[in-house]
Computed example of a mutant assay.
Amino acid sequence: MAKSSKPKKDRKDSQLIIRIKKDERDAFVELCERLDTSAAREIRRFIRGFVADHGSDTKD
């Protein structure tokens, strides 16, 4: 089978595991579903914004 000639998107190759209260997680996931988005997408969006806003301040 021939490989596709489409360029590969940036692959997500790492995980961040966090512990939060089940009620908070459930409320977040439910809200994401109502807003037609995913929890992972919103967390990635938060991280990108946070790094953009604060990243240059924390470099050694």
Rank of each mutant, 00 (worst) to 15 (best):
M1H: 10
M1V: 09
M1S: 13
A2S: 14
K3V: 06
K3N: 11
S4Y: 01
S5A: 14
S5V: 07
K6W: 01
K6E: 11
K6C: 06
P7C: 00
K8Q: 10
K8N: 08
K8A: 07
K8H: 00
K9F: 01
K9V: 08
K9D: 09
K12D: 03
K12R: 14
K12E: 03
D13P: 02
D13L: 10
S14C: 12
S14H: 09
Q15R: 15
Q15H: 09
L16N: 05
I17P: 01
I17E: 00
I17R: 00
I18Y: 02
I18N: 03
R19E: 04
R19L: 07
R19N: 09
I20C: 13
K21W: 00
K21L: 11
K21T: 04
K21R: 11
D23F: 02
D23K: 13
E24R: 13
E24D: 14
E24Y: 08
D26I: 09
D26L: 08
D26M: 10
A27S: 15
F28D: 01
V29G: 02
V29S: 03
E30C: 09
L31R: 09
L31F: 02
C32N: 10
R34I: 03
L35K: 14
D36E: 13
T37G: 00
S38L: 02
S38G: 06
A39Q: 07
A39P: 02
A39M: 08
A40M: 02
A40V: 09
A40E: 06
A40R: 06
R41E: 05
R41C: 04
R41K: 14
R44F: 00
R44G: 00
R44M: 04
R45A: 15
R45H: 04
F46L: 15
F46H: 10
F46Q: 10
I47P: 02
R48M: 11
R48V: 04
F50D: 04
V51P: 01
A52Q: 08
H54I: 02
H54W: 02
H54K: 12
S56P: 06
S56E: 13
S56F: 00
D57Q: 10
T58D: 04
T58Q: 07
K59W: 00
